[in-house]
Design a protein around this nucleic acid. Structure first.
Lengths: 232, 232
DNA sequence: GAATCTATGTCGAAA
DNA sequence: TTTCGACGTAGATTC
């Protein structure tokens, strides 16, 4: 990883054409040749960049200024892209050996919660058993479809953060499911809105619609899972 | 802008929970307090980050290691997010005054091409006049609807890079438009596929479907526009 | 401010 | 390999 702080001008030509006037910016050149041009604001997105695989060539202009030309190979998606960085003055230039990164571990994401709850549906309500995950409906899959002790169908929507839109989503599913004579033969399909955190507004709306709210204790669930896996 | 290269461990808790094991990474702290954690690969997206507005507090753990705690204020969208960066060893630490960036000038984007061609439809074919931009159909708007010298309707799809999917899109529009008795009273609606660059496969497909391909000279178009605006 | 649409989207998983 | 959908989407534009 090479880090350069320099007064520079950047021109990009690819899917679009873009230009950055001369100003001081941070240039990151990663080990794979990819280049990022960052300013001192904005979000995590660079002002301009070149994604790997690409090649950086360092050259000199007629008037003796340093110019980097970054080119991506033409792919199936599109022809070659080019990023031209004209450097006027370098304030800082250093290289660092970082090694391969072990990578990001995402956790607590909805999918993982769903996996855990699919294995332990009784965590949400006693006697609940799983019918299937991603139960298909015309408007999309229900996270978990279960059956309660009395044999009634229960649709479960899982979110990390329970907000109004999640309740709306579950409501739409329930409306649809309750038109299925097979599912609601013994009685209407119930809904459980499960989340690690349920916002007051969402709770009010859910209650109003007859939907049960279930706060999920993620650590406890993971504990259950760990305990179980230790048995094998 | 502060740039730190350090062996660090990162934990994020917000909409999701994420963890980065101890490894050497680049930390960027922008003037607005936003923080980016970059590894030596991947794309322009950091491994982890905190968007502004946020606050960085530098502290020390019980065992004397440096720890940064970055917190975003709770917003309407969600509660507080936190990014904890535990630093084991600092390889590099420097700060740089960048000033405000003049910002990116985007150009040649589809919308801009459409504007230019709407003003100069004859650039695509002699005698072409604009009927309207974003001509609505049941499956979406046609970029430009024109009439040729003979009064026949011409549907124009504009892309910066002409690829197969663009031809397919125009084909669907033409199919629909040719069912409209008003539009094709004097004869079938023709199609022009206009792009700065047309891939061979797209050209073959277009020709096969009786669609005319038009290579757009962006610089010439812009020149026309500039010349015109100089008249006023 | 809320809703909608675009993006040099990026990214990962399934087919 | 291509396609599809989610994203800590972000960002601009419109209502």
């Amino acid at each position: 990883m090479r880090i350069v702080v320099a007064r520079c001008q950047v021109d990009y030509a690819g899917r679009l054409t873009a230009h950055l006037p001369m100003a001081t910016r941070v240039l990151m050149i990663k080990a794979d040749g990819s280049v990022l041009v960052h300013s001192d604001g904005g979000s995590y997105k660079p002002l301009n960049w070149m994604s790997p695989p690409c090649l950086v060539r360092e050259g000199t202009t007629d008037d003796g200024r340093v110019e980097w030309t970054v080119t991506s190979r033409a792919t199936a998606k599109g022809p070659e892209d080019t990023l031209r960085i004209l450097i006027e003055e370098i304030h800082h230039d250093s290289s660092h050996e970082l090694g391969i990164d072990p990578g990001l571990q995402k956790d607590g994401v909805e999918k993982h919660l769903q996996e855990l709850l699919a294995e332990h549906p009784s965590h949400l309500a006693d006697g609940l058993t799983l019918v299937r995950r991603e139960f298909p409906t015309a408007i999309g899959p229900v996270d978990l479809m279960c059956r309660d002790a009395g044999g009634l169908s229960v649709a479960i929507e899982i979110k990390r953060r329970g907000e109004i839109d999640g309740v709306e989503q579950l409501t739409r599913y329930l409306e649809l499911l309750n038109r299925d004579p097979l599912l609601c033969a013994r009685g209407p399909v119930r809904g459980i809105f499960a989340a690690q955190e349920i916002k007051p507004q969402a709770r009010v709306l859910a209650t109003d619609r007859g939907i049960t709210c279930a706060l999920v204790d993620y650590d406890a669930l993971r504990g259950l899972d760990d305990a179980e896996s230790r048995l094998f």
